[in-house]
């Protein structure tokens, strides 16, 4: 089971990337695929993701702004993938906790990008942070910080 998971994840982790390209639909993660999340790269503890604007995901019908929960899902996934893409062998991660600060509403009609980095790994926990933004990471829509439990391959656990 661990091998299968590693294979699935290996298909989209390990390649650097940029927001210049369209990225790839995150087909390995059902919910991420369902809401149209795209991966632009995940390498050396950094993950780049985006989510196109989608009327179905609106939280406030008056303003047409994406629901905070969508941003939460994006940042959670970005942080988790940054941990997976750190320079150590992992089979899976699970979110332990996640804090999200919302700086301003997302702009109606615009894709939201996320850049996450895993800035510290211990034996069993990975710490990651991320920002969500439209064009400029210095003008964030939201930021996140979280801790993730690490699942290592059995042969490495000894």
């Amino acid at each position: 089971m661990a091998d299968r998971e590693e294979d699935t994840l290996a298909a989209f982790i390990g390649a650097g990337g940029s927001f210049e390209d369209e990225g790839e639909l995150l087909t390995a993660l059902p919910h991420s695929r369902e809401i149209g999340m795209r991966l632009h790269g995940a390498k050396d503890g950094v993950a780049l993701l985006s989510i196109p604007y989608d009327e179905r995901l609106v939280g406030d019908p008056e303003t047409g702004v994406l629901h905070g929960g969508v941003i939460t899902a994006l940042l959670d996934t970005a942080c988790g993938l940054a941990v997976m893409a750190s320079r150590t062998r992992l089979t899976a991660t699970a979110t332990l906790d996640l804090r999200i600060d919302y700086m301003r509403p997302a702009t109606r009609g615009s894709a939201v990008r996320a850049r996450a980095e895993c800035y510290r790994l211990t034996r069993s926990i990975g710490f990651a942070r991320a920002v969500a933004f439209h064009e400029d990471p210095a003008d964030p829509v939201a930021s996140a910080a979280g801790a993730f439990i690490l699942e290592r391959p059995k042969e490495d656990a000894a």
Binding site: P30, H31, H67, G69, A73, A94
Partner: peptide, 21 residues
């Protein structure tokens, strides 16, 4: 389509966060 990890399977952490919010 609410599953995060299809191998467990477990709900996506982002879905749970969104549901709480």
């Amino acid at each position: 389509d609410l599953v995060g990890n299809p191998l467990l399977p477990a709900l996506h952490g982002g879905v749970i966060g969104a549901f709480l919010e």
